[in-house]
Amino acid sequence: MYGIDELKNAPVAVLGGGAVGKTVAADCKLGGNKVHLYDMEPFAKKTLAGLEKTGITLAGNPKNKYGFKRLGTAHFDLITTNLEE
């Protein structure tokens, strides 16, 4: 069983590159995690196009229960259509 400190530093795999998946992946990356983003063909041609160059930018005035702000551009460690990766 993992302790909370080990989980804080664990890599994150986001399965699905739609609007919500990319937002969650960007939030995790800006939070300091190693992030792998996957989407399946044929959707990936549209959802993952250009992400290697542009990343995902989170901007605005975030409001959340804990008062933290994760703003900036997230560049992922891996963007793939190969689930095994």
Rank of each mutant, 00 (worst) to 15 (best):
residue 74 A to Q: 11
residue 55 G to C: 09
residue 53 K to Q: 12
residue 39 D to C: 02
residue 33 N to E: 08
residue 83 L to S: 05
residue 76 F to I: 07
residue 20 V to H: 02
residue 6 E to Y: 09
residue 7 L to K: 07
residue 83 L to P: 00
residue 16 G to T: 07
residue 76 F to P: 01
residue 56 I to M: 07
residue 76 F to T: 03
residue 80 T to D: 06
residue 70 R to A: 06
residue 64 N to S: 14
residue 20 V to N: 04
residue 14 V to C: 05
residue 58 L to Y: 03
residue 16 G to K: 05
residue 57 T to A: 09
residue 45 K to H: 11
residue 20 V to W: 08
residue 16 G to I: 07
residue 40 M to P: 00
residue 23 T to A: 12
residue 9 N to P: 00
residue 10 A to F: 13
residue 7 L to F: 14
residue 7 L to P: 06
residue 42 P to S: 05
residue 85 E to C: 01
residue 73 T to H: 14
residue 17 G to Y: 04
residue 74 A to N: 13
residue 54 T to D: 12
residue 69 K to Q: 15
residue 30 L to C: 05
residue 40 M to N: 12
residue 34 K to E: 14
residue 18 G to K: 03
residue 25 A to Y: 06
residue 24 V to D: 02
residue 36 H to D: 09
residue 66 Y to V: 15
residue 68 F to K: 12
residue 60 G to M: 01
residue 75 H to I: 09
residue 31 G to Q: 07
residue 13 A to E: 00
residue 54 T to K: 13
residue 9 N to R: 15
residue 4 I to N: 09
residue 58 L to G: 00
residue 34 K to S: 13
residue 32 G to K: 10
residue 19 A to C: 07
residue 15 L to F: 10
residue 27 D to K: 11
residue 5 D to Y: 13
residue 6 E to H: 05
residue 65 K to G: 09
residue 45 K to V: 05
residue 56 I to C: 08
residue 74 A to W: 12
residue 36 H to E: 08
residue 77 D to K: 04
residue 74 A to F: 14
residue 62 P to G: 01
residue 20 V to C: 04
residue 35 V to F: 13
residue 73 T to I: 13
residue 5 D to Q: 14
residue 14 V to S: 04
residue 71 L to E: 02
residue 84 E to Y: 10
residue 13 A to N: 05
residue 19 A to L: 06
residue 46 K to G: 03
residue 84 E to P: 00
residue 59 A to W: 00
residue 12 V to T: 04
residue 79 I to G: 03
residue 51 L to N: 02
residue 65 K to W: 09
residue 3 G to I: 08
residue 11 P to V: 06
residue 57 T to K: 14
residue 83 L to A: 03
residue 66 Y to M: 13
residue 79 I to H: 05
residue 41 E to G: 03
residue 71 L to G: 00
residue 49 A to N: 12
residue 54 T to S: 14
residue 22 K to Y: 00
residue 19 A to F: 09
residue 4 I to R: 11
residue 42 P to M: 10
residue 48 L to E: 03
residue 21 G to T: 03
residue 69 K to D: 13
residue 83 L to H: 11
residue 76 F to C: 03
residue 2 Y to Q: 13
residue 55 G to P: 01
residue 44 A to S: 15
residue 29 K to Y: 06
